[in-house]
Amino acid sequence: MSADKSNIARQFIELIPHSKALGMQIVSIGDGLAEIMMPYDERFIGDPKTRVIHGGAVSALMDTCGGAAVMCHPDAPAGTATIDLRIDYMRAATPGQAITARAEVYHITRSVAFVRATACDDDTDRPVATATGAFTVEGR
């Protein structure tokens, strides 16, 4: 049951056009936890002087990862949409390195899922960004 749900969530995430456009790849997904990687790409540079990836691309990664965590949660029946998302940028991501986000649903009600997420590059001890968000729980 849970494995089926993870597969459905995985298939859905892999079909999202914008996530594909950003080259996102699912590392792991299941039980309200998701990990998604976004490779470094020069087209996503936000600051030409430092060649650091734009915050917007990190937002898209965090949002996708948060939604994926909700979709694979055992208590969430189907789809989800973001209600709000707050991202704190702790430091610039190192140019040339992939960014991996890890999101978890830390509380879920009949209508809302509360999500925390962290994004890291190769230095996993120092997060690039953290996020908290509320997502809808749909189809119940």
């Binding site: 999202i16 056009p17 914008h18 996530s19 950003l22 734009h54 915050g55 917007g56 691309a57 937002s59 898209a60 990664l61 965090m62 949002d63 996708t64 939604g67 949409a81 973001t82 998302l85 991202i87």
Partner: peptide, 9 residues
């Protein structure tokens, strides 16, 4: 619908 990440970006 437009991706939430696109809207944020």
């Amino acid at each position: 619908a437009i991706h939430g990440g696109v809207t944020a970006a």
